[in-house]
C-alpha cells in the first residue's frame, strides 16, 4: 500500500493504462508539458512521448471529435476536459456522435473513449469552474457515467474505464484531488469491484445515505456525526451513475427503511429524482419515510463567496437525515 493523493492515484492509473496498451492515448488542453492544471497527467508526456500524450488546440468539440476519429482507427483516447463548465462545446460530439455510434452502426463500431471531467465546487473558483453536469450524460443512452470519490477508486476506476469498450464519462471530484488515501498500486484491476457497481462505504442500520464523487467524504463525516444522536447511517458510494447499481441501493434501503440522496448538482430533475423514483417503486413496502434529496439549488452556480450555502454540507445532509425520522 502507498499513500497517494487522488490526483496522483489517477496519474498512476493512467500510467498503468499507457504501459499496458500501446493504443491508449492522453489528449486535452495542457495535459502534456504542464501535466494538466490539476497535475493528473504530470510526467506522462515526458515518459510516453508527444505522440501518445497530446497537447491539443483549445476546442473541446475538437478534442472529443478527433478522439472519436482516433477510436475509429483503433486507439483508446483518454480526453481531459479542463473544467466541468467547459464541456458544453463538446456536448454535441458526446451526445450525437460518441454515445450513438455503436447503435447507429448496429454494433459494428466500438468507441472506447474516456472523457475525464473535473467536477463540482468548493474550491473558491470563478464561474464555470464548479459545476456538476452529470445528468446531461446519465440521460444519454450509450454512455457510461462514473464518479470516483477516493484515491483507491480513482486508481482502479480510471484503468477500468480505459479498458471499457463503451464510452465512459469519468467525473473527478476536484476539491478532493489532494485528499490522501491508501492505494495498492501493485494490484491489478481484474479482481477489483466492477466499474458498474456501487459500494457500501460505511455500514449502518437506520437510514441509507446515497452519494457519489465529492460528497462521499461529506456523507461519511455526516454519518459519524449522526452517531452522537444515536443514529446509524449507512453510506453508499454509487460510483456508477449510469448504469445505476439498483441492487446495492435497494438492498440497503430494504434494510434501513429510509433513504436520502445527496449530490452537488441541482436537486430539480437531478439524479436523486431518478433514484427516488426507483427506490419508491422497488422498496415501497419497506419505506418508513419518503426518499429525500439534498443538493444544489435550481439556480446557476453562485459566486464562490456563497458556495458554502449552495453546496450540501454536513449540517444540511444531517437535516435531511433527521427529517426522514419525522414521518
Amino acid at each position: 500500500m502507498t499513500t497517494l493523493t487522488l490526483s496522483r492515484a489517477l496519474n498512476e492509473g493512467l500510467r498503468k493504462a499507457l504501459e499496458n496498451d500501446p493504443k491508449v492515448l492522453i489528449m486535452g488542453e495542457d495535459v502534456g508539458k504542464l501535466g494538466g492544471v490539476f497535475r493528473v497527467t504530470d510526467g506522462l508526456m515526458k515518459d510516453f512521448g508527444e505522440n501518445r500524450v497530446i497537447d491539443t488546440p483549445l476546442a473541446e468539440s475538437g478534442i472529443v471529435g478527433t478522439a472519436i476519429g482516433l477510436a475509429l482507427r483503433g486507439y483508446r483516447p483518454v480526453c481531459e476536459i479542463q473544467f466541468d463548465g467547459f464541456v458544453y462545446p463538446a456536448v454535441d460530439q458526446i451526445v450525437s456522435q460518441l454515445a450513438k455510434m455503436r447503435y447507429r452502426s448496429l454494433g459494428n463500431v466500438a468507441l472506447p473513449v474516456v472523457i475525464r471531467i473535473p467536477c463540482g465546487g468548493g474550491i473558491g473558483a470563478v464561474e464555470h469552474h464548479s459545476e456538476s453536469p452529470e445528468v446531461l450524460f446519465t440521460h444519454t443512452a450509450g454512455l457510461r457515467v462514473v464518479a470516483c470519490a477516493d484515491a483507491a477508486d480513482a486508481f482502479t476506476m480510471i484503468q477500468q474505464s480505459v479498458s471499457c469498450d463503451d464510452p465512459v464519462i469519468f467525473f473527478e471530484p476536484k476539491r478532493r484531488y489532494w485528499d490522501k488515501g491508501e492505494v495498492d498500486t501493485a494490484a491489478g484491476v481484474a479482481d477489483a469491484l466492477p466499474l458498474d457497481r456501487a459500494r457500501v462505504a460505511l455500514e449502518g442500520a437506520d437510514v441509507t445515505l446515497l452519494c457519489y464523487g465529492p460528497l462521499v467524504r461529506t456523507c461519511l463525516e455526516s454519518a459519524i456525526a449522526a452517531r452522537e444522536d444515536g443514529r446509524s447511517v449507512e453510506v453508499v458510494d454509487l460510483r456508477s451513475l449510469s448504469p445505476l447499481d439498483t441492487e446495492v441501493i435497494t438492498a440497503s434501503v430494504r434494510k434501513t427503511g429510509r433513504c436520502v440522496v445527496a449530490h452537488e448538482a441541482p436537486v430539480y430533475a437531478g439524479l436523486g429524482a431518478e433514484i427516488a423514483a426507483r427506490v419508491t417503486e422497488q422498496c415501497f413496502y419497506c419505506l418508513e419515510a419518503p426518499v429525500l434529496r439534498v443538493g444544489g439549488f435550481h439556480t446557476p452556480y453562485p459566486p464562490s463567496r456563497l458556495e458554502e450555502h449552495y453546496l450540501p454540507d454536513l449540517d444540511r445532509i444531517l437535516d435531511a437525515v433527521d427529517r426522514t425520522f419525522g414521518y
Binding site: G62, V64, G65, T66, G69, L70, L72, R73
Partner: peptide
C-alpha cells in the same frame, strides 16, 4: 470532419 481528422491522426500514429 473532426472524425476524419482524428482518424488521420491515427494514421500518423
Amino acid at each position: 470532419t473532426l472524425h476524419a481528422t482524428g482518424y488521420a491522426m491515427g494514421i500518423q500514429r
